[in-house]
Structure formats: C-alpha cells, structure tokens
C-alpha cells in the first residue's frame, strides 16, 4: 500500500488510557488512510470503545498523540473535534429521544456553523438548502416517511439508521461507528451493510467497531485487533482471519471451525 503520509487521515501514536490501575489502552498505534474502512475488533473489554472516546474528545488520553488530517487534536474538546469533521455513533443508541426524527438530523446539520451570532440565523445560511440536505439524508436511509415521529417511537433498526443519519448530518470526514449492527435483525444488518458500503464508495472514511465478524470482515479494507488494551494484530481481513494470535484471543481455539 502507499507509504505517503499525506493520505493518512487519522494517526494515533502511543495512545494510552488508564483508569486507575486498569490499562484500558496501552501504547496503541492505529492509523487510518483517507477513504478506507477500518474495522476494530477484539474481545469485550479490549479497549475498542475507549479508542472512540479518546478520539472524539469524550475522555482525555493518559498519554499519546492523535493527529487528524495532520493536526493534533489530543487536547481539543469534543465540540471542536466534531467541527473538525469526526462524528460518531454509540453502541447503545443515543438520540435526542424527545425530538422528532427530522429535528434530530436538523440539529446535527447545524453543528458545522459557527456558534457566534447566537440569536439569529447567520446571514448567508441558506435554510432551504439545509432542509433539502436533511431530506436527502432521510431519504437515503429510508426513514423520511417517519420524519415527524419522535425518535423514541422508532424501531431499534430505525433508531440505528437515524443515529447514523445524524452523525452524517454534521458532514464528517471520518465516521466512527460503534457496533452499528448490534441488536439488528439479519435483514436490517444486510441493509446496513449496503448503506455503509455506499457511504464508503462515496469516499467517506469509516472506522467501525464490530462484534459481528460477518459485518466486520465483509466491510473493512483493513482490520485492527485489540486485546486487553494492546494492539494484537492488523492487516487485511484475510490476514487477520488466518493470524494464529487472533484466532486464539478472539475467535477461540477452534480455528478450523471459523475458517471452514
């Protein structure tokens, strides 16, 4: 693969996060190229979600460096990082539950604008165009028909898609998905894979944490395996699938059964 550093979008070096004595992340290096889909897998408690929390500014790393598009974001707040173009979803869906589907996406849409001029709409903001964007997003994820329903009234699959919609409404350069397929029916999962593939084909960089190996191995260009806060392996899905250390830690010892 290309060695040029200019197309590396997210570069994590020596990242550690300790909670008291627990080393949730220990000297982890992960980098993600522009346009690729990177899967992060690992057993429970491996530190996958902690990576997301630290990257999005939810929690501060104990040590280490995170660079996004070449500039350091380690000390920035979550709001600043969002405006730089990193957006995420949560393992347990977190929406504005009392607001409508439309409002959820609409609010996400508006985060890119400056906070200044708080009282009125900034001049030069084309509200009609923004509305059209929201509509297009909702259509793309097939929840436009439910736009006036409260978020809490949706089915779980719709909530998941709405959360992705809201994350996309912030116009991210990098989308972080925390177990997007968990809790979905097989049909919904297939639909989700299609949707994500479309996003990826459109050039969006995606990092996804996934328990469902079918989804993770099927969608990712490259896979990173974490175990007890440390980097266990990385490579293409095929490489990872045949890596003995991964098979032992994550897939269990019955490697033949998995590879069969």
């Amino acid at each position: 693969m290309g060695t040029g550093t200019e197309n590396i979008l997210l570069d994590i070096t020596g990242l550690s996060k300790h909670f008291g004595g627990l080393r949730a992340l220990d000297e982890v290096d992960i980098s993600c190229r522009q346009g690729e889909t990177l899967g992060i897998i690992g057993p429970n408690g491996a530190g996958k979600t902690t990576v997301f929390n630290v990257v999005t500014g939810f929690s501060r790393p104990t040590s280490g460096d995170i660079r996004f598009g070449g500039s350091k974001i380690t000390q920035k707040t979550a709001a600043q990082i969002c405006r730089l173009g990193i957006s995420r979803t949560f393992q347990g869906v977190r929406l504005f539950r009392e607001m409508t589907v439309w409002e959820n996406v609409w609010l996400g849409q508006n985060c890119q604008a400056k906070y200044l001029n708080p009282l009125f709409w900034s001049r030069g903001v084309n509200e009609a165009a923004l509305r059209a964007d929201v509509e297009a997003l909702l259509n793309e994820f097939q929840i436009f028909a439910k736009k006036d329903a409260k978020a809490r009234e949706l089915s779980f699959g719709d909530m998941r898609r709405l959360e992705i919609c809201r994350a996309l409404a912030t116009k991210p350069k990098l989308l972080l998905l925390d177990e997007p397929a968990s809790g979905l029916t097989p049909v919904e999962t297939t639909r989700l894979i299609d949707d994500l593939r479309k996003l990826s084909d459109a050039g969006l960089t995606i990092i996804l944490i996934e328990h469902d190996m079918h989804v993770a191995l099927g969608l990712s260009d490259r896979i990173v395996v974490l175990n007890f806060g440390q980097l266990l392996a990385q490579g293409t899905p095929t490489e990872v699938r045949h890596n003995p250390a991964v098979i032992e830690a994550y897939l269990g010892k019955s490697a033949e059964a998995v590879n069969a």
């Binding site: 709001a79 969002c82 504005f96 539950r97 607001m99 985060c111 890119q112 708080p118 009282l119 009125f120």
Partner: peptide
C-alpha cells in the same frame, strides 16, 4: 435561533450535545 437549538440539545444531554459540536 441557533442558541435555542443549542439549548435544546444541551437539555437532551450534555455529552451528546458536545458531540454534535455544541459548546
């Protein structure tokens, strides 16, 4: 207004609001 939008997001939860770019 934008401020109102931010207020409603913060009322729904500080950390989600933060994540959606609200100061």
């Amino acid at each position: 207004s934008r401020l109102g939008m931010a207020l409603r997001m913060v009322a729904a939860g500080h950390d989600i609001a933060h994540l959606m770019g609200v100061n």
